[in-house]
């Protein structure tokens, strides 16, 4: 457990360091904005590009940090055999959280004070830039995950060291155990990781809503589009990482269920458990693949913000 705390401390320090360096760079660079005064009738493409560069930088930095941290944590976790896979289970959630925290920690682009500035009187909320279902689906999945972990926690049993990480069945003739099974040993840290991920996503969405509007009123559409696309990046990054470890957990849980029912008998009351295990494994694999697809799409969205903002018809955000 000490190694795990050390690993998390290293991750936190790395996230803070990146945040600090990024903040310094932002402060030193000249402000990005259109100069007030004599400007053509429509905002020019280079001016729009300049305004969008920071939005893109922030999204790419968040996704890139999440990927780098995940790879680093995964490699370090493999060596921690004493924790029987717990760091691996937590790697996706914590690395995505770190990326999202970096996103919310980076200050908005500093824009010069124009002689005349304007503001629309519409309140921007963290949920203003995507349809309601784009938030409802991840939240419902998180609730389902917590219920799944509570169910597996209740049905788990301790191993030789007293860690609730296996499933056991005893009949009149024989007893059998199988693992790793997402009992309380994995379940409680995974619930904490999920809550941290949800909070990190909320902070990033708040940052998107709270960033000052682009100074040029002609860029109103652009201003809304970068917020919509950035919201999509945050939702896809958070949901992708979450589905990745939800899927992995379900696969391992399902395999343990199948294993223990296979050890006991080929027929009888344990057969439903085998079927449940097979369903969990298949569903888990599907969730994990969906998670990877969402992560790839988050990365693509992040790197293509500058071209996407010019698409006339916004891409629906139905499934994050």
């Amino acid at each position: 457990m000490t190694k795990l705390i050390l690993l998390l401390a290293v991750v936190a320090i790395a996230a803070l360091a990146v945040t600090g360096i990024a903040g310094q760079i932002t402060r030193k660079r000249t402000p990005r904005a259109l100069a007030p005064g004599s400007t053509p009738a429509a905002a020019t493409r280079p001016a729009e590009d300049r305004a969008m560069r920071f939005a893109q930088l922030r999204a790419v930095a968040a996704v890139a940090l999440a990927i780098v941290l995940f790879v680093a944590m995964f490699r370090l976790s493999i060596g921690m055999t004493g924790l029987v896979g717990l760091p691996v289970a937590l790697a996706a959630g914590f690395s995505a959280s770190a990326g999202l925290l970096l996103y919310s920690a980076l200050p908005p682009a500093k824009l010069p004070a124009a002689a005349k500035s304007s503001a629309v009187l519409v309140r921007r909320e963290p949920w203003s830039f995507a349809p309601r279902r784009a938030f409802a689906i991840p939240l419902a999945s998180m609730a389902a995950f917590v219920l799944f972990l509570v169910a597996t926690g209740i049905t788990s049993s301790p191993d030789e060291q007293g860690r609730y990480r296996q499933i056991s069945i005893a009949t009149a003739d024989t007893a059998s155990s199988a693992g790793p099974y997402p009992g309380w040993f994995y379940g409680i840290p995974l619930i904490v990781a999920t809550l941290v991920l949800a909070a990190s996503a909320y902070l990033a969405l708040r940052r998107i809503a709270g960033a000052p509007a682009l100074p040029d009123p002609r860029m109103a559409r652009l201003d809304r589009r970068w917020r919509e696309i950035s919201t999509r990046v945050v939702l896809r990054l958070a949901t992708g990482a979450f589905l990745g470890y939800f899927g992995g957990t379900a696969v391992f849980g399902g395999m343990a269920m199948m294993g223990v029912s296979r050890n006991i008998a080929t027929e009888g009351p344990t057969q439903p458990l085998f079927a449940l295990g097979a369903a969990c494994t298949a569903l888990g694999a599907a969730l994990a693949v969906t998670g990877v697809v969402l992560l790839a799409r988050a990365f693509w969205d992040a790197v293509s913000i500058r071209t996407s903002v010019r698409q006339e018809k916004p891409e629906p955000v139905a499934a994050p």
Binding site: L111, S117, A119, A211, P212, A213
Partner: peptide
């Protein structure tokens, strides 16, 4: 133009947009 009950932007949002 602003109806009764309508919510205004937060102080932080309006200040950021108006650069004040």
């Amino acid at each position: 133009a602003m109806e009764a009950g309508q919510r205004l932007p937060s102080i932080r949002q309006l200040a950021g947009d108006l650069r004040v």
